[in-house]
Amino acid sequence: MGDMDPAPVDVLNDEPHFLSEPEVAQALERMLNEFQRETDRGAVLIAGEMVSAQLAAEIRALAPPELRGKRINELLKYPGFLSSFSARCDVALLAGFIDASAHRSTVVLRRLRNDAAHSTDAFSLAVHRERLMQMCSLGSGVAASVSEFAAKSVLDDVVYRLKQRGMTLENEIGRNPFSSAAEIFEHLSVRPDLMAVLDERMPKMELAIGVWLLLGLIVHQGKRRRAERTTGDIDDAN
């Protein structure tokens, strides 16, 4: 047997996948951890803050040299005019840092965040499922895929946890009722209470995945914009 072939390289588009950027990948992990502990209200506030912070980072990175340093910090910090989430969204669109679909998505998220922050009643994401799906509509069929991926993730998580726990259960009660995925699904199928719990987890998972995609898109578009500027500068110099 010869040496293994090197991994195929996409010659036309050799840049890394937009979701594999370190800050984006870390953001998903952070959201999955935090959202588990948080209420729906807390999860939306965290999601809004993460997107707002990412927009601030892109604005800072793409700001002209004249505005860099102390001035940009003043603008992004309260009471600077770029301190609010809405201003960052609009300026990012105006400056071409994000496209219309990302802007639409951030606007929906911002409104959702405002509702969560300012409502005096109990806040449930399940009630705002439609808006959540609007936030995830970052392209054709994306919202449906987010929903599907969220359901799969929630189920995979339960299956993984039960498989792990099943191994220790064998020592404790003398049998492992969760030795295979089939057994776990059979158990879940006769437990409507568990299906309801899983259903409750779905909106938060959809929010995490939707925001993950949105952050990926913002980072990707910002990166492309910087690349375009660099190419333009070289052309100008030539």
């Binding site: 946890r161 404790e172 009660i173 158990h187 209470d193 719990v197 987890r201």
Partner: peptide, 15 residues
Amino acid sequence: PQPVVELVAAVAAGE
């Protein structure tokens, strides 16, 4: 008491 299978599943599901 020993671990309750139903409770194990409920906790794994996030309850």
